[in-house]
Amino acid sequence: MTRFSKFTALFLLAAVPFLDLPDYYMHVLILILIWGFVYTGWSIMGRFGLVSLGHGAFLGIGGYTVGMLWNFYGITPWLGIPIALILATIVALIVGYPCFQFRIIGHYFALVTLALAEVVRLVIIGMRDYTGGSLGMTPQRYGEGMSVYAFQFVEKDYFYVIVLLSWVFGIWVWNLVDGSMARYSMEAISDDEDASASVGINVTREKLKITILSAWLTAFGGVLYGQYQMYLNPDTIAGISVSLQIVFASIVGGMYVALGPTVGAVITILLSESLRILVGVELAGLDGTIYGIMLILFIIFLPRGILGSGWAKPLEILRFPKDKPG
């Protein structure tokens, strides 16, 4: 992708609010950007073989921390967000440090993170007196629901700009990691931990850096989701289901390419939305059935995802070139 086409694409995306699209289309676009951002955050670590099945934990921590601080103490999300990120960092450290120190990798790592996702979901449900439990909670509306102070934008155009900026930031971070020394260390580590350690790579520290970065983006994604939907539910924002959803969309799109996870978001959201419109809600579960089959076929035949695979030449334009020095 040349610089020119990149800017053209960005310009077109930025021009969307002026097109005066119906709310529904804006809604779908916003969802795609939020989830694209979250998936990108996951793939920052997923691409290095750190397959976390627990990112729902960070999503939940982000959404609920900001929502609860606002509802109970009136603390503005502008302060709530850094607190949420600090909490996400602490959780990432508590689970990540021993995991990496004790060389818990592969499916053991996946299962530990899965337990983490469930712990966060169950803690939210268990604290039902404060969080509303399984019924979910609604951040209190501030005035007309349009306030920078409360980070609430009932007008979709405004929220669109915010999520677009966040998404661009996410892609920028992804590319930053892609072009950094950390990438080489992490690739070496995912190839052979012992060999990497013996050439002086601090395996634990490199993994922690990537994990914390990924946790930050995901937690912030949780904040965006909560502030946009103005509703939080432990089953949709924490726990196994959403954690698996994150992993799978990233795989379908292709986690080794910057725009891959976003393409995963586009595919999954368009699939469920179009099926909802075409066949209606009576056939609930149809989208998941098709999606499940798609996932199985993808992992068997195209483990590098749509963008990562050779046959997707027509989509090649969406790939960022690997134009790193040296």
Binding site: H107, V247, G285, L286, Y291, G292, I293, L295, I296
Partner: peptide
């Protein structure tokens, strides 16, 4: 591991 995750979605949704 992940492919059986795909099966999980498939079976849940089909049900």
């Amino acid at each position: 591991l992940l492919v059986t995750g795909g099966l999980l979605f498939f079976m849940q949704s089909l049900a």
